[in-house]
């Protein structure tokens, strides 16, 4: 068992590393398709009136006139040693730029995940224990939430709770209530995913014999829910959370824009519009690292938790609707 697990773990870790490196290279190739970069774009702005000679001297200082392959190789070798390079747009180290904004995004993502879990649990609980009509209505909520674009939710929340009711100040974007509403906007579509998986698994578990037996012993609804239905459903839900991390990061890009938060999302926006390749490569790789790490963790932990899973195969792809 031990050596089998060790081999499995080593394989998964190696795969994870390869994926991260590929993500870095992939971003380089994609962004390099469009000619230009922050340095050249500023120099060529006609308002500046620089001569060709001045432009070429500065471009060569930044090494932007070297062949694409050479640039990729150099930046990749730096990346492997942990050096994220210098932003071409702001001339500051990329690590500093990401470091300054990472905290805000982590807070938003964590709060959104919490909101999503609470909503999903509430919906799950409701579908089991509310009267039939309400339960049926509740079952359609995940689908409704998945149809709401998070930027519309965000705009409406701001319109109602900030402008009309004055509950929070939008320019105080990192404050408690503003963060809460941003988390709600980000968390609602995410809660839909978790709720769908939860409901499917709850239905499945509730149909099992042991659940009927537990019900007949007459414990309170909450205890029934928590101990007998929720626990067996938790592993697939954990799997979904690993998938949902990517969605949280995606959604954060838009939500941060709307709520005026200075997080990774706003950094992405600024970097994309100016073609600041070093920052984009670092952010994409960071996102890939997070996704891969969370999934890796789940992959490594799952076999330890669920003895039914064989080590050769993948973990039970929770009955995620496609």
């Amino acid at each position: 068992m031990d050596s089998g697990y060790a081999a499995y773990a080593a394989r998964r870790v190696l795969q994870a590393v390869v994926v991260i490196l590929l993500a870095y290279v992939f971003t380089f190739l994609v962004i390099s398709v469009l000619p230009g970069d922050p340095v050249t774009n500023t120099l060529r702005n006609p308002q500046n009136g620089f001569t060709e000679e001045q432009i070429s001297r500065i471009v060569s200082y930044y090494g932007l006139d070297r062949p694409v392959g050479v640039q990729l190789w150099e930046s990749l070798s730096r990346f492997v040693t942990g050096d994220l390079g210098v932003s071409l747009r702001s001339n500051l180290p990329v690590s500093r730029m990401i470091g300054e904004v990472l905290g805000s995004t982590l807070v938003l993502a964590a709060s959104a995940l919490a909101v999503a879990l609470v909503l999903a649990l509430a919906i799950g609980f409701g579908t089991r224990f509310l009267p039939k009509r309400a339960a049926r209505l509740l079952r359609s909520f995940p689908s409704l939430f998945l149809s709401l674009p998070n930027f519309v939710i965000g705009l409406v929340l701001i319109q109602v709770f900030a402008f009309q009711l004055g509950l929070f100040r939008v320019i105080d974007a990192e404050g408690g209530l503003a963060t809460f509403f941003a988390a709600v906007a980000l968390g609602i579509p995410v809660s839909a995913r978790i709720a769908e998986v939860l409901i499917t698994n709850l239905d499945h578990e509730a149909g099992q014999e042991y659940a009927a037996v537990a019900r007949s012993r007459g414990p309170g609804r909450a205890r029934l829910f928590a101990r007998h239905l929720l626990k067996p459903s938790s592993l697939p839900v954990v799997t979904v959370i690993a998938v949902v991390v990517g969605e949280l990061l995606s959604g954060a890009v838009i939500t941060e824009q709307i709520f005026g938060r200075t997080g990774i999302g706003s950094l992405v926006q600024r970097s994309v519009t100016t073609q600041d390749l070093p920052v984009l490569q670092a952010i994409v790789s960071l996102a890939a690292v997070v996704f891969v790490a969370v999934n890796l963790l789940a992959d490594l932990v799952y076999p330890l938790l669920d003895p039914r899973v064989r080590l050769g195969g993948k973990r039970q792809k929770a009955a995620v609707p496609a």
Partner: peptide, 23 residues
């Protein structure tokens, strides 16, 4: 591994980068 990369990069981020490259 290629598919892993496409799945590891958050959807919106991936779309933004590709759009900024294509126009």
């Amino acid at each position: 591994r290629l598919v892993d990369v496409l799945l590891a990069i958050p959807e919106f981020l991936l779309a933004v980068i590709i759009v900024s490259s294509l126009g």
